Amino acid sequence: KEFRPGDKVVLPPYGVGVVAGIAQRSVSGVSRAYYQVDFPGSRSKAYVPVEAPHSVGLRKAL
Rank of each mutant, 00 (worst) to 15 (best):
R32D: 06
F39K: 00
S31L: 13
Y47Q: 03
P12L: 07
S31E: 11
R43L: 13
F3N: 01
V18S: 05
V48F: 04
S55Q: 09
E51K: 05
V27H: 08
H54F: 07
P5R: 10
A23I: 15
P5M: 10
R32V: 11
R4N: 13
Y47T: 02
K45R: 13
D7L: 03
K60Y: 06
K1L: 15
G6R: 02
R59N: 06
Y34C: 07
S44A: 13
A52L: 06
S44T: 15
G29H: 03
Y35H: 02
L62S: 14
P12C: 14
K1G: 14
Y14H: 08
D38Y: 14
F39E: 02
P40V: 09
V27K: 09
E51W: 11
G17A: 02
G57N: 05
E51N: 09
P13R: 08
L62D: 15
S44F: 15
Y35C: 05
R32H: 10
A23M: 15
K8L: 15
A20Q: 09
L62F: 08
V27G: 05
E51C: 07
V10G: 01
H54C: 13
A61M: 11
P5I: 14
G29S: 03
D7G: 02
F39N: 00
A23P: 03
A33I: 09
R25F: 12
V9L: 03
S55V: 11
K1S: 14
E2R: 09
V18D: 01
G21D: 05
R25G: 09
K8V: 14
A20V: 14
P12E: 09
I22R: 02
G17D: 01
V56E: 08
H54G: 12
V37N: 01
A46K: 10
G15N: 01
Y47C: 07
G21H: 06
A20N: 08
G15C: 15
S55T: 12
Y35L: 06
G21W: 01
A61F: 14
A20M: 12
S44M: 15
A61S: 08
L62T: 14
S28E: 14
V19N: 00
Y35N: 03
V30C: 10
E2M: 10
V10W: 13
R4S: 11
A33K: 11
Y34W: 05
S55I: 11
F39L: 04
G57F: 02
Q24M: 14
H54E: 15
R32P: 03
G41L: 11
V19P: 01
K45E: 06
P49N: 04
Y14P: 01
G21M: 09
G17T: 00
P13F: 09
Q24T: 13
R59K: 11
G41W: 07
R59D: 07
G57Y: 03
K8D: 04
P40E: 10
S26R: 13
V50C: 05
G41S: 11
V50F: 05
S28T: 07
R32I: 11
P13H: 10
